[in-house]
Amino acid sequence: MRQDHLITATQLSRPDIEAVLDRAREIDGSREAFEQRYSGSVLALCFFEPSTRTKMSFETAAKRLGAETIDMGSIESSSVKKGESLADTVRVIEGYADALVLRHPSEGSAKMASEFVDVPVINAGDGAGQHPSQTLLDLHTIRERHGLDDLTIGIMGDLKYGRTVHSLASALTNFDATQHFISPESLRLPRSVRFDLHESGAQVREHTELDAVLPELDVLYVTRIQRERFPDENEYHQIAGEYRIDADTLSAADPDLTVMHPLPRVDEIAADVDETSHARYFEQAHNGVPVRMALLDMLLGGDAA
């Protein structure tokens, strides 16, 4: 990649994405070849909010490359709790590690952190902003099944606060993809994301219901609608229920439809979908390891794509 950091998916060009995914494919084919490549390197996992999944995925990727990982322990006992600024925290940790992975509740936190340190910063989620490494593994999953061009994708659920959605939508503008966004009115894509999609000339449609668009989809990407987005419990249950899928819902879909989810899911995809050939979300989660290995390889190795 031509960048030193991975902050947003909007910074990624088609060649950047393809280079990482090609490398991930190569790693998938011959893990041994990469096993000790980064022995002696240290990756800092700076998680300011809990995320067992993403953290473990990065940790596994680092270890499979032979690198060590360090983390901040529990937030409760750390200096952050004592009021240290993020700018100070990352400048201290920079001295311990060769790259930083950052998860933080404020939008723009990874961007700011990258301005204070010289080692690569990977944004592992900044509030309701972006989550670009998730996007790379999502794209890897789609690419291995369908390819990334001539693709029709439906993205459903909480599109307003869903950072995985924001990153995925913007990365897909590099490809010949038609994007359908399906959500309740109150959780549609934020203005800044719609602006970027519009500027890029992407083919985009917004819907409040899945039914009409489901039969044309190659991929359905489901995200969770969270309880805390609604002041009223009943309203939440009613709305969330409308964006839930089960095996029966999918009987109207193309037989080759791929169903994805960034996980963890609660009940937005019923367990009976797991048994269908549509379900790819566990494979998607597993793809996090080779894709993050590829990403680390390119950022730590200073590789120009």
Binding site: S85, L86, A87, H104, P105, S106, E107, G108, S109, K111, M112, E115, D126, G127, A128
Partner: peptide
């Protein structure tokens, strides 16, 4: 205008 933006936190930027 985004209250959750890092530039509204207590950071030296």
């Amino acid at each position: 205008p985004n209250r959750n933006c890092i530039s509204n936190d207590d950071e030296p930027v």
